[in-house]
Amino acid sequence: MNGARVTGCSLTKRFGHAVALDQLSLELAPGESLAVLGPNGAGKSTLLRLLAGLARPNAGTIEIDGAPAHRRSARRRIGYIGHATLLYPALTARENLVFAARLYGVPDPAERAAQLLEDAELGAAADEQVAGFSRGMAQRAAIARGLVHDPALVLLDEPFTGLDRSASERLLVRLATLRREGRSLVLVTHELAHAAQLADASLVLAKGRTVHTGRGEDAASLEDAYLAAVERAA
């Protein structure tokens, strides 16, 4: 699996008068992983939605392998695992994945869904409606949905939120596997230990601006940068 190259240049995003991102730039080489940290309202999720092509910047450019993020060719390479699961509660896990596979034009949707459900340890619950799933099960199904088309770039928005310790550890193993497979990862999280474990590089935001960038940092130095960002945002 070849990862995707991500290039963001002077990104600005406003919602009315509020500036969510202000002149933010970032660069991610294929196969690299980036942790995006910062206090609430720093613009992390907005950045992720710009990278996914779900929103367009008011100024600046964002490219995935040279194509603007909102283009179809870029969307095909992106797997987005948001804070919400993107799943339909009235459908079963299998139906949700088959539907997602059909959206992405995956050749054999049923087989791909079955394979992903097994990987996510959801084989036994595959034909149960998602409405009855625990947060951990729904999160595993959401990750399977995000990977249904074998994306080169995986965007994750606070994937550890609401998970218990064992579910978090399983997710950590899953994300480490994705990284080993050579995918590019962008991980928005408040879990500094997980960020240090998974990311090659870090980007700390406060009030929509970059306040720190680093590479290969441990949890302690990430915490220092994070606390500085919180202070700046206060």
Binding site: L54, R72, G82, A84, L86, L103
Partner: peptide, 12 residues
């Protein structure tokens, strides 16, 4: 569950 974003992400 923000399923609308799931539709918007489809590469079609």
């Amino acid at each position: 569950n923000d399923a609308l974003s799931g539709l918007a992400l489809a590469p079609a």
